[in-house]
Every structure is written in C-alpha cells, then in structure tokens.
Design a protein around this nucleic acid. Sequence first.
DNA 1: TTTTAATAGTTGCATATACAACTATTAAAA
DNA 2: TTTTAATAGTTGTATATGCAACTATTAAAA
Lengths: 159, 159
Amino acid sequence: MYFCTMSKKEINIDFENSIGPWLGKTVKLVDYFLQESLNEHNLGLTKEQVIVLKRLHDQDGMNQNELAFITLRNKSSLTRLLTNMEGNGYIIRKKSVVDKRIKHVYLTKYGKETFIKIRPVLKNVMSTLEQDVTEQEKAQIINILKKIQHNFNSKIESI
Amino acid sequence: MYFCTMSKKEINIDFENSIGPWLGKTVKLVDYFLQESLNEHNLGLTKEQVIVLKRLHDQDGMNQNELAFITLRNKSSLTRLLTNMEGNGYIIRKKSVVDKRIKHVYLTKYGKETFIKIRPVLKNVMSTLEQDVTEQEKAQIINILKKIQHNFNSKIESI
DNA sequence: TTTTAATAGTTGCATATACAACTATTAAAA
DNA sequence: TTTTAATAGTTGTATATGCAACTATTAAAA
C-alpha cells in the first residue's frame, strides 16, 4: 500500500549489522573457551571464581563491597560466590575489628598456589583473543568500547 | 635481585589494557540497561526471553535445536527457558508429525503482541549503544570482533 | 543523647546456565 | 531385519545471578 513504503528490514531489528549481538556472541565464545580451559585442570574452578582469585592476588584483603564492585557483580551474588570459594578452601573471610559490619577477604595458601598454577590458562585465553589483532586495532576497539560504556553510563545516571 | 629483572607488570595480567575485560564489562552494562528497560514495563520478561521472542518473530516454528543454536545456548538451558515462557503464555511447543523427536516452537498471539510492544525497548538499547559511534567505527569493531571469534573458533575446532 | 540514616553483608525467592545421564525416536550398519 | 548410532528433548544436580527483605552495625540528625 502506498502509505506503507517502509521495507521489512527497516521495521525489524537487524542483529547481523548491530554491535550489540556481535559483542554478546564474542563474550560467550570467550567465556566458553575460558571455562573449557579451566576444566582441563579438574579443579572444579569456575571462570567467575578465577577472576576473584586474580583480583585478590592483585590486592589481597579487599572487603566484599570492593570486591563486588571490581568484579562487576551484585553483593548478594558475591556472597554466595565467596561461600563456595571458602568451602573449597580458596579464600577466608575475616571480620574487621574497626568496623564490625565489614568482612575482609584473603587468599589462603591453597588459593594463592591455585591461582599461580592457573594463571597461564588466563594468559593463554587473553593472548588467543588478541592474536592477529594489531596494536592499532586494540586501541580502536578499547576506544569504541569506552564510548559505548559512556553512552549507557550517562543514560543510567540521569535517571 | 639481579636474576629477577622482570617487572611486576610483565608477570601479572593487565586487565586494564586487555580487550577481554573491556568486552565483558561492556556486555554487562548493555545487559543491565536492557533488563532495567524491560522491568519498567512490568511484564516479568527477562532479556533472554525477549531475544527468544525476537528470533521467533523473525522465524516462527523453529525447532528447539535450531532455536538453541541461534540464541547461543545449551539445549537444556533452552528447555527450561521455553518451559517458563510457555507457562507465561508467550509460546507453545508442538510435536512434529514427521519426526516425533522434534518440537516446533511458535509464538502465541500474546507472545507476538508482547514482542511488538517491547520492540521499541530493544531498538532503544541498540541505538543508545551505537550513539556517537560512526559508521567507520561500527565497521571496525565488527571486523575486530569477527577476528576474535575466528581466533577461538579455529582453536576450539582443532581439538 | 536518642532517634533516624545509611551501610555491609546474608537469605528467600526466582531465573538462567551447563554438564551428564536419561527417554524416546529415527537413521545407519550388520 | 535386527542391532547399533545418532539425534531431540527432558531432568538431576550444581553454580551463578539479581531483587527485595532482613540483621547487625555505624554514622548522622534531632
């Protein structure tokens, strides 16, 4: 009909030519490869737990609030993640004596040893990811990702 | 000590200057914004369910295998996702008469109406994401993401 | 100082996820 | 044709996730 000249393509959403779905698919692939690599070590470690180990190895003794923020997750989600990790002996929680609300999180000896052992896996995932990606492309993509994050952050904060 | 000239930076993994963590953080932000936008409609829809609605709206009647593949998830994960969506009246499953193993998935009237109503939300997320991103940058990032996916796919398939 | 906020962490509830083991059905091999 | 493979989907079990409501503790306001 003459008053409906829009093509189907314009009405519908084109996932093939949009950044969002490409990002999502890529991250799923990275996550899958990372988890598979971890599974080969038969330690029962999840990718999320490894990231926590890495962050604590960088800076031991963070409290749960800081750890939740830096690992980009909800505090209740972190609580349960840490409960599992504590049960497996990777970390311990210690109540602060200054502020009894706060719990600091520390790597155990086993947790530290495990991270050292698993670190090459993490390195391998990251170098696989950036294989054949030039320094220029790396700068480009990080720059674009920063722009995308800014787009959402400015919208979220304005609410 | 003289035999240990490596700086800490080289031994440790630098998340700030690696593509992986930047990708992960960006996708989390996109997901958060999408879910928040959906919540405003009080339909109890999750972002995963909306993607399924979108895919079925593009091509109704796919079987669960195809739907799992196109939405990038495990078949058992899809089973439970569909169970929830069927319970909420968005979709129905129909056993194939040709091959009794197969179940085709169809949008209900309510499912279709819901997707039409929710589609602007999806569009808004995607245009927010690409706001201020030039066509050149869009081509660049998709190109780099394709390269990253290829890096992992070739490693995974070679196992 | 007493009351009221805000903060840190936990728990209830619901969804999403994936691997492995399972059932049912169909296709391939003997 | 009978046996064996492969395939589609479901279920058990376990982890991860987030919102809302909760407890305990500390900080701010009255």
